[in-house]
Amino acid sequence: MTLYLLCLLLFCLGIYCVLRKRNIIKIIVGLIISEYAVNLFFILIGYRMQGRSPIFDQKADILNMVDPLPQALVLTSIVIGVASMALLIAIAMRIYEKYGTFDITQIKELRG
């Protein structure tokens, strides 16, 4: 339970970073932190007490493995994260090129 709460704390930390920071790069770092918190939580969901890694092997018995499905899914979600973060960083660099700053308080020509 404590571990779950720590994950939640990490998630909130990331969201706080996204909402509160002014630097674009720090916002992206916040996104990465909270994304990893979700991934970590997913892995923890699949954990069993004293479970071994879910690799099919010739010698070892296949009893008491941790749930392999979350691990595969987390891999997918990490890949998705890589794609969107790479795009965000590219956009951030372009913004720096155009505006000459990373400070979002100075990048507000649009008012939504």
């Binding site: 890589v82 790479a86 960083i89 590219a90 660099m93 372009r94 720096y96 090129e97």
Partner: peptide
């Protein structure tokens, strides 16, 4: 894909430096 991402980010930086 990863190499292309890296190259794209590097080349983007080159453009900025030129300016």
């Amino acid at each position: 894909g990863l190499f292309a991402i890296f190259v794209a980010l590097v080349l983007l930086k080159l453009d900025t430096e030129k300016k």
